[in-house]
């Protein structure tokens, strides 16, 4: 519903698969994932733990190469990131595409000052002089809302609180002005008040720098308030995808419906909450049919033998289900 005349695709991912091997067993963590992200757009990636959200992000950046096999394509300015040699990858990683990791407590180097850690990125990806780099580092800390930025450059990560460390992570990620930001649960470790600040910050930066953002989260509220597009993942696949408004208003995949219903909102207090029966399947022994079949209230005989493909419906929504939940008003937009 945004009135953006031209949507320029920034990153086009298709058929992305990542498998981790351990001896004779192989764990397919991401299976045939595809999505497109445009300039200035925020895509939410949701799902339970182990559904492959983080591995998807890591595969795009080539971070899961060392211990897994990635196939498929992730087109970035005409180059396929999946097959790009490591040396070229280093140029893109941190420069054009930046990532914010989940745990601000462990992702910063405790032995280096914050200033040095921001400088590192700039040294690697820009031709700025030392003076300019310092100026940019201060500017970035300022942008992410760290007071007295100039003096805090010389402080170590332990001198910052959790929320402040997450801001430092964002400052490092954004220092080289990336065109795409991959944010892996950037606010999960934080309090709601700080979460709101960080999300607002990411939103305004996406707008100001026309930066694409992929936001991995398990909080549907965060998606509702931040993203334009959303992809729901289950057992390594995308099961439903579309605009946030339409997916959250009228989920068509039974799994999305279940996720939405488990959130205690608009239910009478102290009544039993809805919960999806059973547990996600082990990735070591995935069923032949639909991975969600065993837990699905709408399953039919066909679900256990055939696997539903992600099918695009009217209005840009894609759903991978044989027995889609009917749209309430008839017309899903």
């Amino acid at each position: 519903m945004t009135l953006r005349s031209v949507k320029t695709p920034l990153l086009e991912v298709s058929g992305l698969c990542t498998t981790f091997g351990a001896g004779d067993t192989s764990v397919p963590a991401v299976r045939d994932v595809g999505f497109t992200i445009n300039k200035g757009e925020i895509l939410g990636l949701v799902g339970e733990s182990g559904s492959g959200k983080s591995v998807t992000l890591r595969s795009v950046l080539g971070l899961s190469r060392r211990y897994g096999r990635t196939t498929g394509s992730a087109l970035w300015r005409g180059e396929n990131l999946v097959t790009l040699p490591e040396s070229d990858m280093r140029r893109i990683r941190g420069g054009e595409i930046a990532m914010i990791f989940q745990e601000p407590m462990t992702s910063l180097n405790p032995l280096l000052t914050v200033g040095v850690q921001i400088d590192e990125t700039l040294k690697a990806h820009t031709d700025m002089s030392a003076g300019e780099r310092k100026k940019r580092a201060i500017e970035m800390l300022d942008v992410v809302g760290i007071p007295a930025a100039g003096s805090r450059l010389f402080e170590y990560p332990h001198q910052f609180s959790g929320g402040m460390r997450q801001r430092v992570m964002i400052a490092i990620a954004l220092a080289a002005r990336p065109k795409l930001l991959l944010a892996d649960e950037p606010t999960t470790a934080l309090d709601v008040t700080i979460q709101a600040q960080i999300l607002d910050l990411i939103l305004s930066l996406a707008k100001d720098f026309d930066m694409g953002v992929i936001l991995v989260t398990h909080d549907l509220g965060v998606v509702a308030q931040t993203c334009e597009q959303v992809a729901v993942m289950y057992a390594g696949r995308i099961v439903e995808q579309g605009s946030v408004r339409s997916v959250l208003r009228e989920p068509r995949h039974p799994y999305t419906v279940g996720l939405m219903r488990s959130v205690p909102q608009n239910v009478p207090p102290r009544t039993p909450l809805y919960s999806i029966p059973g547990t996600p399947p082990s990735l070591l022994s995935l069923p032949d049919g639909c991975a969600f079949a065993a837990r699905c209230p709408q399953r039919t005989a066909g679900c256990e033998t055939g696997r539903p493909e992600l099918e695009t419906l009217k209005g840009g929504r894609s759903v991978a289900c044989f027995n889609r939940v009917e749209a309430k008003g008839g017309a899903a937009a």
Partner: peptide, 14 residues
């Protein structure tokens, strides 16, 4: 402030 910071599930309920 604390209660208002909790993100709502409704995308239009800013």
């Amino acid at each position: 402030a604390l209660l208002s910071a909790a993100p709502s599930l409704d995308p239009d309920d800013k």
